[in-house]
Design a protein around this nucleic acid. Structure first.
Lengths: 259, 259
DNA sequence: CGTGAATTTGACTGACATCAACTCAGGTGG
DNA sequence: CCACCTGAGTTGATGTCAGTCAAATTCACG
């Protein structure tokens, strides 16, 4: 399997499965190679070092535990080094509305910049690890390193466009399309990270998927069964194999046609 | 009516009604007093001047015409000086999905930073006027004025949280709640700008409201009638008067109770 | 193995969409 | 000035997609 870093799905799983000794990883966020903050920018070594220096402690977050909560005061952004998270808001009755699923390499907490308070809660979907990035320090660095500033703006902007596409999904698409879009999105994100785009674990429950997509758990279950029946994918618990990504993408497209 | 700037709804309308000579306004974006970019920051006069200098030409956008289109290359952010806009994405069949309605004082175009291409189209809902803010120049200025940098980040972050609350609305709320939330949101934004929170014009058509809220034009019409019947508001074409904002806010809250 | 939680499946219901007819305001031209 | 037209909006009848409720099944874990 020709994935960019030669890491197999299995070795990845072994790293993030609960119980695996994470200590075997390097304890420093060496030149940030794992997260998107400096990866695609072409910083020189000096800048890299400075970025490394402001990056705070690594922090392990066990499955189900909370990285930050709605209302917490904002100090840090978090770069996910390992694992998966969900972020959610609360509706007026205390129910969750999941606003996103984040994976290794992604940055969370940017919604808190506006008011210095977190507007969502972030919970680890599996044993995970993050780098704390103290926002005050980061801001000082942004002034000194224009490339970093530009990149940071791109990342915030990317979050805006990501959310816009979720609005499109929730406002415009049928259940079948939504779920297909969800799978295609996961697939492409795994591919971008060098993992198989065809075979991956759903890190979230059916309930969480449904919540995110504005559907019920039963609908998700039915859609999985339907896709299975139509030869679009294989499912085994949370293990998914996409058998016909082309057709899946086509389903994503048609607004009201597909049944 | 004790609104902050003493501007009445009528005088505001007279400014933005098609045909009114906009030339009576000052031609320079004098110390940016109209838009949020520097308003709440406490910049000194020197900084203000520098900000003024980078702000490009004022641009009038007539009702129905386009400020920028999906796929356009990104050069400027736009601060709305006058009027209202809608922004929308396209689904795969070419249909609009409106992602937001923007009014005077708001900044649009931030979703384009990530890829240097606009991800949405912005159309004026009435004769409007914007300030062009060349993003390259702005970025240089951000480096020199930390307060401006911080404020710019707050504005981007605010856009992220705004979209998250729309996701909550689309993913979690019933039609009645969505529409109530929409009205309450408009109301509070007008209030923040010194206009009446109770009486205002809907600048967008029923169809556009429905599109934004993930509902049909007929549903919006029925909801208006229902609210009218229940004494929550008065409607006359696009003129709305909220008669019971308290109850309207209450409706926003309950997820599945209100019928 | 056994127990509770998660998921699947089926039958039924309901909220909102769709389709269609109608009203009304604003503009146009005779 | 008024008849006509057009497009936006309203209202009613009907259909359908996904939600709700309930039961069966599988899975996770002690």
């Amino acid at each position: 399997m020709p994935y960019t870093n030669g890491m197999t799905q299995e070795s990845f799983n072994s790293l993030v499965t609960p119980g695996t000794p994470l200590e075997t990883l390097k304890t420093k966020c060496a030149t940030c190679s794992m997260h998107q903050l400096c990866l695609p920018m072409g910083l020189d070594n000096n800048d890299m070092d400075r970025l490394d220096q402001i990056i705070g402690r690594r922090r392990k977050v066990t499955r189900g535990s909370t990285l930050f909560r709605i209302g917490d005061s904002f100090q840090n952004l978090y770069a996910i080094r390992l694992g998966h998270f969900k972020t959610y808001q609360l509706n007026r009755e205390g129910g969750e509305q999941i606003t996103g699923f984040q994976m290794a390499g992604e940055l969370i907490g940017m919604d808190a910049i506006s008011t210095d308070l977190h507007h969502c809660t972030a919970v680890a979907l599996e044993d995970s690890e993050v780098c704390e990035i103290p926002f005050d320090s980061l801001q000082q660095l942004l002034v000194d390193i224009p490339a970093l500033l530009r990149h940071f703006h791109r990342m915030m902007s990317q979050e805006i466009t990501r959310e816009q596409s979720v609005m499109l999904l929730l406002g415009n698409m049928q259940a079948t399309q939504r779920f297909a879009a969800f799978l295609v999105n996961l697939s492409s994100r795994y591919e971008a990270r060098g993992y198989s785009p065809h075979t991956f674990q759903l890190r979230m429950s059916r309930e969480e998927i449904g919540n995110y997509l504005g559907l019920t758990i039963e609908s998700i279950s039915r859609l999985l069964s339907k896709f299975k029946k139509e030869g679009l994918l294989r499912v085994n618990n949370r293990e998914v194999e996409l058998l016909d990504p082309i057709r899946l993408k086509a389903i994503t497209a048609g607004t009201h046609s597909y049944t």
